[in-house]
């Protein structure tokens, strides 16, 4: 018997079933059922407050930082329900990395930022300094930041320009090869040039990583994603190939939103 490398369940990086989430009494996600394909860029769009960021933050359970969150249902990442009792959060977050709206490099050096996960997750002493240096270098090269920072690796990361900071925030996810990269409006703090740079980077990283991006910028969703999910009031309204969602939406709500009639 041979196992198919891309069996039907392996094609999806994230699958949710009956996912509901409450902030206190307010239900922010209602019966969300979604399957996100592996190795492509999926965008989450919808008006403010529709739950898209909340949904994204469920995928690595970073929502739970706030005490009053209740989650029910399943979220399967590569076949494993991440809300099971035996799931270790550090392991989950190693597999599912996140890029935030405002670039948030840690207030330590550029090098230490990229090596942070290696140090947090690896057994002490299991990785030589040389191996670590190489991992840092290749991560920074992958995000096209190496040439700009190679002479200032030990300077504080918080001193970089915003665009560089955001690239660094992506680079620091790479040394441990995550399966999924979540991006929460990663360009909203950047200018047009920075936005373009990050989008170019996303297309480079595509295929090696599954990318889910929340965006307010519909043009960005349209040009930078393969599939698109439209959400409204905590529910998924539509999910399909991006061009279909934009050009041939099945729902009136989707059509109104993508045409800019509200939101």
């Amino acid at each position: 018997m041979t196992t198919e490398p891309n069996g039907p369940t392996d094609q999806y990086s994230i699958e949710t079933k009956d996912l509901c989430l409450w902030y206190g009494d307010f239900q922010a996600l209602i019966q969300v059922r979604v399957r996100i394909r592996q190795g492509i860029i999926t965008s989450l769009i919808g008006p403010s407050g529709c739950g898209k960021t909340t949904l994204l933050r469920c995928f690595n359970r970073v929502n739970e930082r706030y005490g009053n969150v209740t989650t029910t249902g399943d979220v399967r990442v590569l076949g494993k329900n991440i809300y099971d009792e035996d799931v270790s959060l550090p392991e989950l977050r190693k597999a599912v990395g996140m890029v935030f709206q405002r670039p948030n490099p840690l207030p330590i050096s550029i090098y230490e930022n990229v090596a942070f996960q290696l140090k947090v997750h690896a057994e002490p002493g299991s990785l030589s300094k040389r191996e670590r240096d190489q991992a840092v270098e290749s991560a920074l090269k992958e995000v096209l930041l190496w040439d700009a920072v190679k002479d200032s690796l030990h300077k504080k990361a918080t001193g970089l320009q915003l665009e560089e900071q955001q690239k660094l925030c992506i680079a620091r996810l790479l040394p441990l090869k995550p399966q999924v990269i979540l991006m929460d409006e990663p360009c909203s703090a950047l200018d047009a040039r920075g936005t373009e740079a990050i989008e170019d980077l996303m297309s480079v990283l595509r295929e090696r990583y599954t990318i889910v991006i929340v965006t307010h910028n519909m043009a960005q969703a349209r040009r930078a994603s393969d599939e698109c999910i439209y959400m409204l009031l905590g529910r998924i309204v539509e999910h399909g190939p991006t061009l279909d969602v934009f050009l041939r939406p099945n729902h009136k709500d989707t059509e109104n939103y993508v045409e800019g009639r509200y939101g």
Partner: peptide
Amino acid sequence: EAAESLGATRWQVVYKV
């Protein structure tokens, strides 16, 4: 938030960040 989303435990957040 950044450190936690990178998989740091709460104690690691304290002494590393």
